[in-house]
Write a protein that binds this DNA or RNA. Sequence first.
DNA 1: ATAGGGTTAG
Length: 584
Amino acid sequence: MHSQIPISGFAHLESLISFIKSATQTTQLLQIHAHLLRTSLIQQSTFSVPFLRRISLPPFQNLTYSLHIFSQISKPNVTHYNAMIRAYAMSSHPERGFYVYRDMMRRGIRPNPLSSSFVTKSCIRGSSLFRGLQIHARVLRDGHQSDTLLLTALMEFYSNGARCDDACKVFDEMSVRDTVAWNVLVSCYTRNGRTRDALGVFDTMRSGEHGCDPDDVTCLLLLQACSNICAFEFGERIHRYIKDHGYIHALNLCNSLVAMYSKCGQLDKAYEVFKQIPNKDVVSWTAMISGFASNGYGREAINGFREMERMGVSPDEQTFTALLSGCSHSGLLDEGRSIFGRMQAEFGVVPNVHHYGCVVDLMGRVGLVEDAYELIMSMKCKPDATIWRTLLGACKVHGNLTLGERVIEHLIELKAQEAGDYILLLNIYSSAGDWEKVIETRKFMKEKGIQTTPSASTIELKGEIHEFKVDDTSHSRINEVYEMLDEIQKQLKIGGYEADITNVGIKETETRLSYHSEKLAMAFGVLATPPGTKLRVAKDLRICTDCHNFAKMLSGVYNREVIIRDRTRFHHFREGQCSCNDFW
DNA sequence: ATAGGGTTAG
């Protein structure tokens, strides 16, 4: 035995507690356990609760042991129960926390706010909606609705179940809101697709009489939100806030800043932050490489990788995903293949679906669609829907009808076919002139009730985010936008633009042409900004050929730089050209 | 008296 347990006397009891709290080895725990049993101190929650805590939390997390201790306590009180609920909530059987909670009430022990807070956690981890609702009802009945920490847990619960409105309701009814509560609100908004509302919190949380200051976590969450919708100016504001509040030395925030600027198409800004990070880790390097890659600078991504090697930082899975995607976006076939080969041999990174996906994209891009198919079939890991979709996209570009049909079969087998897949197939048929199949597929889609989900595009103007969807008329200046769009179409026609009729997404509605959301966003940009202003649009799906042509023409005719970030990459339009070589 | 929270940084 390395250290001795304090034997007796009141003064020693305190050191016993600290001994429990600092125990790092199982032998120590067993020793303490024996002592607690011998002295019957185990019956006192002062000792048994810290002990339970110690063994149920990392590094031990020994649930069997926790249960054993719990059974040796003759009259467990609330705190004992709480410790057990918590242990279960954090275990791989979170739902058992609820059983303990119920058992506690059966024995006539009233749960306190802390019990409810832990059991809510167990519902979150176990995704048990109904039980969570029961707990909320009980919390209200027990009059615990003024406990900020408990209500925060309940917000998380609703946020986790995609019930954003309920989470907001809990938040609204909170009497005291601290920074953590606000952070949960931000996280709730971003996780449930309400990015603009998330950004709005940055200002609302500071105003009002009980205002809270955003902390490092808030900044991290908001930077993510900015990345999602290309909110560059907003991102800059947060960057300033980070500097002003002394968070600039936090590595996670710096890495997030690099990612945010990259995802807003501002590589220079990303690099500026990147080069000032003193202790760059894998994440920093990967963020930068990924920034180069998605903005179409495949060579720079590869150079970045070399530099990273020189600095002695070892790459991981995600570094290679970034690198390979850079190769595919820039059409660097040989480089991509070489990296793919070195990856496992030199760095011991086993290729995953994403890595294969990039190589498939790379091969598909240069027309090696059959080879890409063979590669997918030879994979050790199970092909996912995305990789099949990548190949389907390549089939569309190269007009490979038979392979396209085979790929759809695989998607059907995975039960993962989406509207977009059929749209691609439709496009393959229509560009091949096979109208019979077009009609057939359309009919099939209608029968199966496959509907196209309207995609959204956002554009930021003076820090304010404007969102557009197809046929969406909710924007306050929508009529002007449509007028402007008609005007632009007219101008572009003079320049030789023609709507791509092989594209199925465009249809006439009763009143006006139906435009893709990115066109609406661009038109709004032209309308609402002075001539020459750069337009930055973010889109949640991939841009289509027609909109791509439209943007190219617009950048020339209107002399505007346009940046569109779609689901997979950036398109920098300038003087009638696009930086990408995405087969358009 | 004892006891609690938010972030998969790429």
